[in-house]
Each structure stands twice: as structure tokens, then as C-alpha cells.
Amino acid sequence: MSIILNNVSYTYGEGTAYEMQALKNVTLKIDDGEFIGIIGHTGSGKSTLIQHLNGLMKAVSGEIYFNGRDISEEDFDRKELRTRVGLVFQYPEHQLFETTIFNDVCFGPINQGFDKNEAGLRAFEALRMAGVPEKLYYQPPFDLSGGQKRRVAIAGVLAMKPEVLILDEPTAGLDPKGRDEILDLIAGMHRAKGMTIILVSHSMEDVAKYVQRIIVMDDGQVFLDGAPREVFKYYEQLEKIGLKAPEVTYLMHDLKNRGMAVDWDATTVEEAKQSILKLFQ
């Protein structure tokens, strides 16, 4: 079970004055059960890339394989692919439309062809997983707070029981508390269900704390690909493409340069804390 991209390129507005190459020969392999962060500044091709993974966008050149099958093949069921690779868009609360939260979450499973009962069961399960309080299930989705709406929207994708979940900036526009809650929710799903999760973000802090692998995009190309520790070693190069390593990386480098034997490639505050405490023991 894996997604493989081979030399994928995509160009917006081909043949017009506004032609722009958004992806340039991207080659990637995404394995089952991975927790991946995709980082890059605005316009680096992150969003274009993830829309290729579930077949919403069609590569201009190159191939994408899902579980060994080329998704651009004539008889490949792209509608089914979209339910197996769930994609939560940026500001997903903007897609809510039903009269009640419950009905909105049922939309996905019903489109998959499940009957009312099965769809309802899936919706309940998804809403519980997304941490939406039960008393809200039959309320209209439009009166909720931003964070709650986003949970409902994520539940709407989860209800289809995707094997791979892609989230495009799931924390954009949320306050720090809402942000932590959503990220903990996502990390919990990875732990409990072993889902493959791809998290798109431009916050290094968010990504460093949770993911196992980071893919850095720049100008439509994969700039770096590796474990957080490996990627943040190149913090000087990251700065050149408009990104930053987590603050704690800078702190640890500073401490090390001043002669403290700390673990300088710590990527989270917790790791850094342990490393500094060890020094004083």
C-alpha cells in the first residue's frame, strides 16, 4: 500500500499569458502508515501536489501510482480513489451546507453508496472521532465556532473511512488552543488507527512536534525530504527559501556554539528540555 509519484509536473494556465509551472518533476514515495509534513512557503506547490494525490488534478506529465496502479488509466475509478485518499481542504468549514451537522457528515458516505443506516453509523463514528460534542449533532453547522466547524468538516471526510488523510493547513486561522486541539486530534488518529497522514503547513513548530517525515517544497520541487532532525540540520538553507527551523533549533545551536554539550539537533521543546536537564544532572 503506497502512493508513488514519478516525475510529476503540472502547469497552470498552459498556453496563456498567466502560464505558471506549479510542479516540476516531483518524485516521491509515500508508504502506508506514515505521518508526513509537507512544508513550503506560499506558492511553492504544496496545495497543487496534494490535489494530485487523490486525482482531483491531473498531472501534465509523469505518473502517479496508488497501490501499484496508475491513477490516470482510463478504467481507474477516480471517484473511489477520492474516498480512499481523503482530502481536507484549507478552511474546510466553507464547504458545510446541510441543515444539520449530522446530515452534513453523512454526505460523504451517502455519495459512496451506503444506505441511510450505514451512513449514519459512519457519521456518528466520525463525529465522535473528531471530538464534536454530542449535543451539537442536530444543530445547523453555521452557528458553531471556527474550531468546532473545522472539526465537523474533518469528520465529513473521516466518515468515508479513508486510508490516507491529507489535511491542507488544518490550523489556519485558529487560535493557539484550537490549533493544538486539532493537531492532537490528527496525531491521535495516526496513533489509534494507523492511518497514513499528510499534513500541509507552513509552521515548522506544528510539523516538528508531530510528524515522522518532512517534505520541504520550493518552487514546485522537492527541496528536502527526511526525518525532522535531518531536515532541520539544513536550517540555513531553509532560511534561504523563506522558511525557518523551529525556534528551539536556533536555541540549541546557540547553546552549543557557546560551549554547552547539548543535543543540538533537538526539534521539539520537550527534547530540548531533556537534553539541557541532562547536562545539569
Binding site: 487523490n54 481542504f89 464547504q95 454526505f107 460523504g108 455519495n111 468515508m160
Partner: peptide, 10 residues
């Protein structure tokens, strides 16, 4: 975007 978001939900 909305069209794509709903297409992602089948």
C-alpha cells in the same frame, strides 16, 4: 475550491 472539496467527499 468548493467544487473540489465536495468532489473530495464523493
Amino acid at each position: 475550491i468548493i467544487m473540489k472539496a465536495q468532489m473530495a467527499r464523493g
